[in-house]
Amino acid sequence: MIRSFARAAVAVATLAALSLPAFAHVTLEVQEAKLGSTYKAVLRIPHGCGTEATNAVRVQIPEGFFNVKPMPKAGWTLETVTGPYAGSYDNHGTTMTEGVKEIVWSDGNLPNEFYDEFVFRGTFAGTLEPGKFYFPTIQTCASGEEAWIDVTGAEAADMPAPSLTLVEGDAHH
């Protein structure tokens, strides 16, 4: 009896230890959004590349998240890469066919010991499928990068892209 408890304890401890690195992933603060709704993405960067400080954060804006506006950040240069959308999206009566495809905060310095958040907002198209939606993100440091671009959704993924779950929105928007 005692032995099985001990085993269970070890198993739980091991599980906890194994799942710990998940907290060190780059993640989004809000994990769920409705289709067709506006979403404020708060990207949490928990550490640098190994021990190196983060100098740039690049976020890819996938198709279906439109009317994107990043929030400027003191000490960082903000740039966007724009381009045509594959589809067209209705923004309160205006049809949008192009917009931000990538956001780049650069020339900054976020030491490994510190934590920071990067914010942008936009709208999820009502035509998207419910389910996981990924924002592939790359942290760039002095001599390397951390690429959070795994969009397979695999449980064991080393470096999953930050994601949220899209759910069915209200029938009328």
Partner: peptide, 10 residues
């Protein structure tokens, strides 16, 4: 395989 900056395939 890292196909592009934001794209990789396993």
């Amino acid at each position: 395989i890292r196909l592009g900056a934001f794209e990789q395939r396993t």
